[in-house]
Design a protein around this nucleic acid. Structure first.
Length: 567
RNA sequence: UGGGGUGUAGCCAAGUGGUAAGGCAGCGGCCUUUGGAGCCGCCACUCCCAGGUUCGAAUCCUGGCACCCCAGCCA
């Protein structure tokens, strides 16, 4: 399946001002010197052994973004050289996630497409005397590899004849030897200070059904042997990867040079780390398998599908990737920064609605029984084209429990006995009574009076009151459930062996009995709203008409919470 | 203590011999029928440290220090 569209076609170039970074500088220089005949061709090469996460998004935005801005190309290539870990489920999710982020690949390939070519290349190296079949097992090989400070020793099989190597390698492929009994190794230098150059393994014998090639092969290429040659075959100009592969670059270069084939340039950048979360696929997989989360797309996960379900927009993730930049220094970005990018985007596009998460009944004593007014409410003050809607208002309402305090602290602008507050889009009311449950002391009803002159839009409505609160008409409200998410871990850096002990037990809070305005009755999964004064919410995939479920994507900036906290 | 990298504000990050961009956070103020949004202002006499070169150094040189990565038949 190949997609011919230009990379990133759906994203206008110049969506944000292009930010300089060292990778683009290298490309500029290469363009100037005509190193690659004016071509720019990148690739995003995930291993299909897990779901993509926000760290991959950084790489995706880098690679596809470069292709877009330089009018070049970007391939999607699955690095599927280890059949024991890779599955179709993952390739499907990866395709979906890349597209959801807004990118279209020019070519879609698999490293496994090149198994035949790679085998032929291996034959070439053997004939050149640059590769040999080694009979050492894994333990023996490790012993001879030396250490970081001591050189390794040559394998006793290192000097086999070319003919014998050819014969043995062909028989490895033919399945004559047991798994792990032999390897094909590059003949480089066992004394190299770079351990990657100490006769690295190119092929191992592994009888495992591959998700695409089935049982055709029982030898599989190692990453180092597959990656550069795949880049070369595809005509990649700039092979961008993360820092830990910097030590592999000499090997990358050695292979293409010895083969005498087209030579792409590998460039390494620092991977993304985020506070309050884990990013390794191994750990994310463990969270899923151990049931600590509800699957790869749990809204608390830093996976692309998790963020999507949480309510993140692709635009906000791209903006985040642009704003954090690209460099070679190890960095950990504050997750609050990701959230800020999200708010910036949602603020401009999410329709406002009123919803009460923790309702308390409020009765307007002097409002006529049985009367319903349809009040005009603006859909999005940031977007005049969003229009307005009617919201029903009546004598009995629900307001947020937290918007009433019997003993208000200093600077509390909301409702309290005897105080006035504005009901958003409606009237100014005054609290005249509190009804409590005799046994529990819990507040069950608030009684207020309203000032009929202060209806929103009328001349008298200009009267100043300290606070404005949201509400929903009891008779017209629709029931809903909310899922309130907090950080998955309660420490900034949940590293080390004990990482699971830092899981935040309160990362998910289910709130039943929410009351939302009637315009939300038919809300569909993935729709995003701002619940005024509370935050951005999106309709969960589990939501059904009549059983609405909202995920809290992110809170609004909350100045009051800050004041109260510091008090 | 082998090799490869990286050190600029609380967090990211520009800067490439001419006198420290920008964003986020933070702090003041304005505005506001979301304590939202928006707007204005403040926020590094100094760039890991120490020497040196230079009229001039975050940028060049020398020597230290700190942190990250590498000893998979994982990627």
């Amino acid at each position: 399946m190949t997609n011919d569209k230009a990379a990133g076609e759906s994203i206008p170039a110049g969506e944000t001002p292009v930010r300089r970074n060292f990778v683009r500088e290298i490309i500029d220089e290469d363009l100037k010197t005509n190193k690659f005949a004016g071509r720019v061709h990148t690739r995003f090469p995930p291993e299909p052994n897990g779901y993509l996460h926000i760290g991959h998004a950084k790489s995706i935005c880098l690679n596809f973004g470069i292709a877009r801005d330089y009018k070049g190309k970007c391939n999607l290539r699955f690095d599927d050289t280890n059949p024991t870990k890779e599955e179709m489920e993952y390739v499907e999710s990866i395709e979906q996630d890349v597209q959801w982020l807004g990118f279209n690949w020019d070519g879609m390939y698999y490293a496994s497409d090149y198994f035949g070519q790679l085998y032929d290349y291996a034959l070439q190296l053997i004939r050149k005397g640059k590769a040999y079949v080694c009979d050492l097992n894994a333990d023996q090989m490790r012993e001879l590899r030396g250490t970081l400070t001591e050189p390794g020793k040559n394998s006793p099989y290192r000097d086999r004849s070319m003919e014998e190597n050819l014969d043995l390698f062909q028989r490895m492929k033919a399945g004559e030897f047991a798994d792990g009994s032999r390897t094909l190794r590059a003949k480089i230098d066992m004394a190299s200070p770079n351990v990657n150059m100490r006769d690295p393994v190119m092929y191992r014998i592994l009888r495992s059904t591959h998700h695409r090639t089935g049982d055709t092969w029982c030898i599989y290429p190692m990453y180092d042997w597959a990656h550069g040659q795949s880049d070369s075959v595809e005509g990649i100009t700039h092979s961008i990867c993360t820092l830990e592969f910097e030590d592999h670059r000499p090997l990358y270069d050695w292979f293409v040079q010895e083969l005498g084939i087209y030579h792409p340039q590998q460039i390494e950048f620092a991977r993304l780390n985020l506070t309050f979360t884990v990013m390794s696929k191994r750990r994310l997989l463990q969270l899923v398998q151990d049931g600590d989360v509800d699957g790869w797309d749990d809204p608390r996960m830093p996976t692309i599908c998790g963020l999507r379900r949480r309510g993140y927009t692709p635009e906000s993730i791209r903006d985040f990737a642009d704003r954090i930049g690209v460099s070679k220094s190890e960095s950990t970005v504050d997750v609050a920064f990701l959230e800020e990018c999200l708010r910036a985007d949602l603020n401009k596009r999410a329709p406002r609605v009123m919803a009460v998460l923790h309702p308390v009944k409020l009765i307007i004593d002097n409002y006529p029984d049985g009367v319903v007014e349809e009040l005009e409410a603006v859909n999005n003050p940031e977007d005049p084209t969003a229009g307005s809607r009617k919201v029903p208002f009546s004598k009995v309402l629900y307001i947020e429990q937290d918007d009433f305090r019997e003993d208000p602290p200093k600077k509390y602008f909301r409702l309290s006995p005897g105080s006035e507050v504005r009901l958003r889009y409606a009237y100014i009311i005054k609290c005249v009574g509190v009804v409590k449950d005799e046994k529990t002391g819990e507040i069950v009803e608030l009684h207020c009076t309203y000032d009929a002159e202060t209806k929103s839009g009328s001349p008298q409505s200009a009267r100043k009151v300290k606070g404005t609160i949201h509400w929903v008409s009891a008779e017209h409200a629709v029931d809903a459930e909310s899922r309130i998410y907090d950080r998955l871990f309660n420490v900034e850096d949940p590293g080390g062996e004990n990482w699971k002990s830092y899981l935040n037990p309160a990362s998910l809070q289910l709130v039943q009995g929410c009351k939302v305005e009637p315009s939300l009755a038919h809300a569909q999964p993935q729709e995003r709203y701002q619940f005024e004064r509370l935050g951005y919410f999106c309709v969960d995939d589990d939501s059904r008409e009549g059983t609405l479920i909202f995920n809290r994507t992110v809170t609004l900036r909350d100045t009051w919470a800050k004041i109260e906290k510091s008090a």
